[in-house]
Design a protein around this nucleic acid. Sequence first.
DNA 1: AGAAATAGTGGGAAATTGTGGTAAATAGTG
DNA 2: CACTATTTACCACAATTTCCCACTATTTCT
Lengths: 150, 150
Amino acid sequence: MFRGVNNINLDAKGRLAIPVKYRDFLLAHCNGEMVATIDTDERALLIYPRPEWEDIERKVQALPSFNPASRRVQRLLIGHATDLQLDGSGRILIPPPLRLYANLDKKTVMLGQGNKLELWSEEHWVSRRDAWLDDKSGLELPPELETLSL
Amino acid sequence: MFRGVNNINLDAKGRLAIPVKYRDFLLAHCNGEMVATIDTDERALLIYPRPEWEDIERKVQALPSFNPASRRVQRLLIGHATDLQLDGSGRILIPPPLRLYANLDKKTVMLGQGNKLELWSEEHWVSRRDAWLDDKSGLELPPELETLSL
DNA sequence: AGAAATAGTGGGAAATTGTGGTAAATAGTG
DNA sequence: CACTATTTACCACAATTTCCCACTATTTCT
């Protein structure tokens, strides 16, 4: 569904132009309706088409609510979820709280990640990416990865 | 499928002429549709015919998303995967973020590697290759290699 | 060796996209 | 209730990108 990197500039009003290659799909699939929330592990935002988000929201809602880890995920994910709508020029408006969370000013990077898009500040993305590129050690590889041939 | 080395010049717009010997195959096999992504171990790009890439993408997508090593691979591989299309002159356009990653300016080297093509900056390719030729030590041979007869 | 065909390279024009501004509408406040 | 401030949507211009065409260089065949 979504893949690839894009460098996108936020304008002065906090608007973000969605890459053209995604626009037609988004309009056809969900009328340009999306949901943005935070990534709980990284200072980045996750942007889902509305139907995909609703699946996830249902699953998160269903987690046992007496479990602290579940409550944490519920509060963070659902608590930050915001409806977004493609405007006539193919842009979405990132609300200030989310902009703040991910340190988005002007230069941003959008990553396609299958069913969702990730939005990073360019500076932060580059530093995290370089860290991953350097550090090949220390991470436990799941067995599926051990044998994966590219 | 693909084999051999080719020296190819990127033009001023970042376009890359695919070697003639691959063109007919690419047009017949996938309409000239390809996907480029980064090599996570080297500053080089991997270029797959679209069907071959999609096999790999499916496998990578299926990895557990709460596992840091998986997320790393997903972000790096799928996050950088970009659709490419052969133009009327048998060229593809390498998008700026990927060009930047692999330090591609003008002189590049394309390596055939079975189901994929690798693209290196000439300078970097030469220095890495020479390093491999010098240093044969320190690498553990997997058992398959121990018994391989050339 | 010459000629013809094929491939490499570059440039230009049209269409598409990014960007910013303005006007209208809505919400908030005195 | 009215006025002001902020937001939202729409529109226009500028820059970029993409596609197509032409020229040059190289290779192959006669």
